[in-house]
């Protein structure tokens, strides 16, 4: 078997999710090649070549892939991937965008968002917002798969020595073009891969109050998240949303503040190692999954939390 992993990156660095996907590829077994498609991605290809377990890195470096347009990536990956038994990428917004195009162009099914590998053709994935877990067998000769990064421990980023090969394949479908982007600027760690996440919910009452959480987050080196209720209420932008309709996270420590714990939120964070909940409603469902629960008014508890943390950190 031979597996092609499509690297996730932002043209400046390799995303950790790629290492999780390589881990999923190792669980399937076989030679693992990594495709790095983007613009000016030499350094990223070198980083991918150092990842544990990678056999060969293929590089498609062209302006056509610079903004990860699905129409162009879809054609590229379908062509490069047709000789492989499996094509894998992370179930981030880029992978979710282009990968189904690859599957359709190859006339095969896609298995989305796997969290476990049972065998080379059988995979486990959550359905119904994580309220059920399905084991699915794929019968196509090429398995096209997106991987939920939190389902797999990443392979080591260093130690490998894969060869790097430049590809001369330029696919520009001419259907779409990049207009612009607004990236949330933050010095905090990336929500999807952070070791600690602090999230606020509707109990925060407004966006201004999230500053309180930011101070605690900076103290702990945590990423900031939010419940869908807080996003829908307009307190914070959608890219902070944790839950089935937002990001799926599994940090070492997840701190839920003013979050009641709707099913859709729990689906996005209940694989966290340790969960802390601060909520004034002692009946809130979040307490049913929290390792440590504090029934308190968050506007008193959060400043105290910050003070106590300063003593020990």
């Amino acid at each position: 078997m031979s597996i092609l992993v499509i690297a996730e990156h932002d043209n400046s660095s390799l995303k950790q999710a790629t290492l999780n996907v390589v881990a999923a590829a190792k669980a399937i077994g076989g030679d693992i090649d990594v495709l790095v498609a983007g613009e000016n991605v030499g350094a990223i290809a070198e980083a991918a070549a150092k990842a544990e377990g990678v056999n060969k890195v293929l590089v498609a470096d062209n302006a056509a892939y610079g903004h990860f347009l699905a129409e162009n990536l879809g054609e590229l990956v379908a062509e490069v991937g047709k000789g492989y038994s499996h094509i894998l990428t992370s179930a981030g917004t880029t992978g979710k965008d282009f990968m189904p195009r690859v599957a359709a162009l190859l006339d095969v099914a896609q298995v989305s968002d796997i969290i476990r590998v049972e065998s080379a053709d059988t995979f486990v994935r959550p359905i119904y917002a994580g309220n059920a877990i399905a084991t699915v067998k794929a019968s196509d000769s090429i398995k096209v798969i997106t991987v939920r990064p939190t389902g797999f421990d990443p392979v080591a980023a260093e130690g490998g020595s894969a060869s790097v090969e430049q590809l001369d394949v330029v696919k520009d479908a001419g259907l779409s073009s990049f207009v612009g982007e607004e990236k949330a600027k933050s010095d905090r760690p990336d929500l999807a891969s952070a070791g600690i996440v602090i999230s606020g919910g509707r109990g925060m009452q407004n966006g201004e109050n999230f500053k309180m959480l930011e101070q605690v987050a900076d103290l702990m080196g945590a990423a900031m998240g939010a419940s869908r209720a807080a996003v829908d209420a307009g307190f914070v932008p959608n890219d902070m949303q944790v839950g089935q309709t937002g990001k799926i996270v599994a940090p070492q420590l997840y701190v839920a503040i003013g979050i009641s714990g709707a099913i859709q939120h729990l689906a996005g964070m209940s694989d966290s190692k340790v969960i802390v909940a601060i909520n004034k409603d002692e009946e809130a469902p979040i307490f049913q999954v929290a390792d440590y629960g504090l029934v308190a008014d968050l506007f008193e508890a959060v400043p105290q939390f910050e003070e106590e943390l300063k003593k020990v950190l």
């Binding site: 059988t122 877990i133 399905a134 508890a301 106590e308």
Partner: peptide
Amino acid sequence: PRLSTLKVEAPASRQAGIKVADVAELV
């Protein structure tokens, strides 16, 4: 269909932990 569902299970449920009395105990 190219995919067959072999089984569907309920997710492993997480056990509720403890309630702490105050912030100092939490930290």
